[in-house]
């Protein structure tokens, strides 16, 4: 009988793609949403006044735990849908992931205690900043190590406990922190007013420059690291297909420089999201 196509035959092709898309969405949303609240922790000690710090903390306190949920979904989804990848990545990134969790504990608890503390408020301010910076750095390191690849033998991770610590992953970590700071400056431009917003415009300008520089560095470094990526990127047909990504990034970058503050706000969020998209696609 010539039955068209049996649905169950298609599932092995179809399901991994669907789950890949779900996980990509979860990670993308985490970088976007968790990014701005981690970035706020990085900016926290640099804020001009004490009241500004209260305003910064208040602006994210209703949202931050919701943002972190995307990370839980990413991790849980990876275990459920791609257990083999999970079983390789988690042992390979054991130390950065544990440190990230410690950072997230410290900053999460700081939200609750800081509003109650009087004499010890500085302790929770420190915990918030330290936790945020640690979590952001470890996420960047994990991403850098992931791009570099893991030593796998017999479907198991076969490297050492510190394989993740390389010059590439350290630069990735710093790049991710600057991306988070840019997102967070955009958040403050959207949420804060007057002096704090003006300050955020200034931060956004520097963060945008830093992110642009890092995009350039990784656009050169990644193909050097992986010849197969270089082959894929620089094949003439693919170069035409992929060119909108760097061109759009460059356009928003240039646009933000010449335009007024109002346009800056929009281009800021546009270029940081395209930057995340590039990171996500690697």
């Amino acid at each position: 009988m010539t039955a068209a196509v049996n649905m169950t035959d298609l599932l092995p092709i179809f399901l991994p793609l669907v789950w890949g898309a779900i996980l990509a969405l979860a990670v993308f949303l985490y970088v976007l949403l968790g990014g701005y609240d981690l970035g706020l922790g990085v900016l926290f000690p640099l804020a001009p006044t004490h009241d500004d710090r209260d305003a910064m903390m208040g602006s994210v306190s209703p949202f931050w735990d919701g943002n972190e949920t995307w990370l839980v979904m990413g991790g849980g989804g990876l275990l459920a849908a791609f257990p083999l990848a999970y079983s390789v990545m988690l042992p390979a990134l054991y130390i950065p992931i544990i440190l990230m969790l410690i950072g997230l504990i410290l900053r999460g608890v700081a939200f609750e205690f800081r509003f109650k503390a009087e004499r010890h408020r500085w302790m929770w301010d420190t915990a918030f900043t330290f936790g945020s910076v640690l979590a952001a750095l470890m996420q960047g390191v994990a991403m850098g190590a992931f791009v570099q690849g893991f030593t796998v033998a017999d479907n198991k991770f076969a490297g050492g406990p510190f394989d993740w610590l390389t010059p590439f992953s350290v630069v990735t970590a710093i790049a991710l922190v600057s991306g988070y700071v840019l997102l967070s400056a955009g958040w403050l431009i959207m949420k804060a007013d007057e002096a704090l917003r003006d300050w955020a415009y200034g931060v956004a300008r520097y963060a945008l420059i830093a992110v642009a520089v890092f995009i350039l560095i990784f656009s050169l470094w990644t193909p050097l690291l992986h010849p197969e990526i270089a082959a894929r990127w620089f094949k003439p047909a693919n170069m035409v297909m992929l060119s909108p990504v760097p061109l759009a990034t460059a356009a928003t970058r240039c646009g933000s420089r010449s335009n007024a503050a109002c346009a800056m706000r929009r281009s800021c969020s546009a270029s940081s999201s395209s930057c995340c998209a590039i990171r996500g696609s690697r």
């Binding site: 544990i98 410690i102 406990p161």
Partner: peptide, 23 residues
């Protein structure tokens, strides 16, 4: 068992106990 060295596991346990103690 996961291919994670015992030292890493011990260090993470100590860290968690420490941080939970503080909190």
């Amino acid at each position: 068992v996961s291919p994670v060295p015992g030292g890493s596991v011990l260090a993470s346990l100590v860290l968690f106990v420490l941080v939970y103690g503080i909190v």
